[in-house]
Design a protein around this nucleic acid. Structure first.
Lengths: 158, 158
DNA sequence: TGCAAAGTTTAGCCTAGGCTAAAAATGTTT
DNA sequence: AAACATTTTTAGCCTAGGCTAAACTTTGCA
């Protein structure tokens, strides 16, 4: 457990200092870690959404929604299969394993929290959707909880 | 036997939760675009910070702070040079071009806004730093403006 | 029923961004 | 000044994630 220097929001101007090198490195490492899992999560989340809303997840639809070619999707599906996140048989549509379903649900929730938070901050819908898509994978549990709470308060206070 | 096309989605109202495919694709494309530039921006921002705080930006220090090997840094520096963002001579330390300086300043500001915003939301410093590092590149100008305003209000209201 | 269209997969290319190992240049110490 | 240490660069390997082209399977329609 790292020792957190301070828990108060620091709104002073003392922000011109760099963190110590090791902490700095850990920050970037965290970002790289997020990047490794984020495409996987996006695919799994999208497959879950397609299964829920369309009843099936087809490579064509995934490709159209991800904005990539089918060949790219095909290889990613193989990877998801290798990782035990989806099941698929050649030329048939794709299903989530139990683990895949869990990941999809997790992603869906996280995505929802960030999106709602941005909206409740006053960000317009189209912008909120784009930003949420990118931010989603870089928001810690801690921050996610604070966002959730904030959104609820806003909703109640309106 | 489940066939391919029995369960065609009823597009009339079922996909109200999903954006239309083209918009969906644009969201992911925006994330991919951000990923392309974000490492570049991180390096440039870090080099700027090192120049400001240490007077020079050396590959060793960049490597230590990025948490990668020097070989990785060396190749990235060549790329930054190719893109006209830094100047460097063999075995000498690195400097920003005018364009590089502008990008560093831009990144520094953006980073600061996100970090301060998270702190003013009540996120602890260590977490805020990590999250800000990841979120920074996925926050639109629109949202950035709203974050800036929010932080100011919080500061005043305290 | 058979054939064309649509969907899926495979093969192979490219770039980015990690890595290690080793060579080359610079800096330091005795 | 020579030897050693540090820093920087280069070469080459690996994986991820885009792409195109082409082969193959399934579906739908005349």
């Amino acid at each position: 457990m790292p020792t957190y220097s301070d828990n108060r929001p620091d709104t002073s101007e003392q922000d011109t200092n760099l963190p110590p090198p090791e902490q700095h490195a850990r920050q970037y490492a965290a970002v790289r870690d997020a990047h490794e899992t984020e495409l996987i999560e996006d695919y799994v989340e999208l497959i879950g959404d397609l299964l829920d809303h369309a009843g099936e997840a087809r490579a064509t639809d995934i490709a159209a929604r991800m904005g990539v070619r089918q060949a790219t999707v095909a290889r990613m599906i193989r990877r998801l299969n290798d990782q035990g996140l989806v099941t698929n048989e050649p030329y048939r549509s794709i299903f989530l394993t139990e683990r895949g379903r869990a990941m999809a649900e997790e992603s869906r929730k996280r995505h929802g929290v960030v999106l709602q938070f941005l909206r409740s901050l006053g960000v317009d819908d189209a912008t909120a959707r784009i930003d949420a898509e990118g931010m989603e994978h870089h928001v810690s549990e801690t921050t996610l909880g604070i966002m959730r709470e904030f959104t609820l308060k806003q909703k109640g206070g309106d």
